[in-house]
Design a protein around this nucleic acid. Sequence first.
DNA 1: CATGTCACTTGTTAATTGCAAGTAACAATC
DNA 2: GATTGTTACTTGCAATTAACAAGTGACATG
Lengths: 124, 124
Amino acid sequence: MSKKKLSGHKEFIRSRCPIACVLDILGDKWTLLVVRDLLSGKKIYGEFLASFEKIPTNILAERLKRLIEHEIVVKSPYQERPIRYEYVLTHKGKELGPVLRAMVQWGEKHIPGSKAMLKPTEND
Amino acid sequence: MSKKKLSGHKEFIRSRCPIACVLDILGDKWTLLVVRDLLSGKKIYGEFLASFEKIPTNILAERLKRLIEHEIVVKSPYQERPIRYEYVLTHKGKELGPVLRAMVQWGEKHIPGSKAMLKPTEND
DNA sequence: CATGTCACTTGTTAATTGCAAGTAACAATC
DNA sequence: GATTGTTACTTGCAATTAACAAGTGACATG
């Protein structure tokens, strides 16, 4: 019964450069990790929390909300009593695959201790 | 004559996932915009400051320092008296091109008002 | 020698993050 | 049916980070 802010957390646009626009949505340490998990098939709140990097729960909730606002993710109930929701990528969200894959390639090549876990290819 | 912290601002590693590793270096709203400018041929402090998004000067200085620490950028003097430095991408840095290009593609396709400015291809 | 420019640094305030704890809705166990 | 547990969050608060303004040092120009 209290909705502090229901939207419009970012109405100011830095520029029309697609990179700036993308960073306004995805440019932080956690959001793309959630997208990674979604791409790898994780669907449920607890699954995201359980990932190795241990995302704080409030940040997970906020990021999911943002991804939903931007139509990268949809939330839908997969059971009633007790009501439980699942999160899945939209088409738009799935198309972030190439961005993630480019990052994985760069990381594997240039960051010493890094080893991939993302499945090879999982397109639409 | 005071070096508050000379390095080691992030010795804790979240995970070995390349995406997490990349986000630990580049995961914020500004760093990849600096890389974008470097890829587009900008070299000098003032040029980065002058970009449309108007990065704050202290953040630019810190991000350049970080990119240098991670060997994505090198700083070298291009003139003496008055001494002036230029920043250029290393090979490692240039290889971020595909990541940026994937972002541009996604942004242009999925974010309404976004229009690209990054040059088509500029490989090594 | 006064003013200006470039490349930063410092200080102060505002916003965001991270951690811990709490809550609502049930389910299962005692 | 009271207690404990699970899931999916929300809330509070300290700590980190970002944003804006102003300052600094090394010169160059007039």
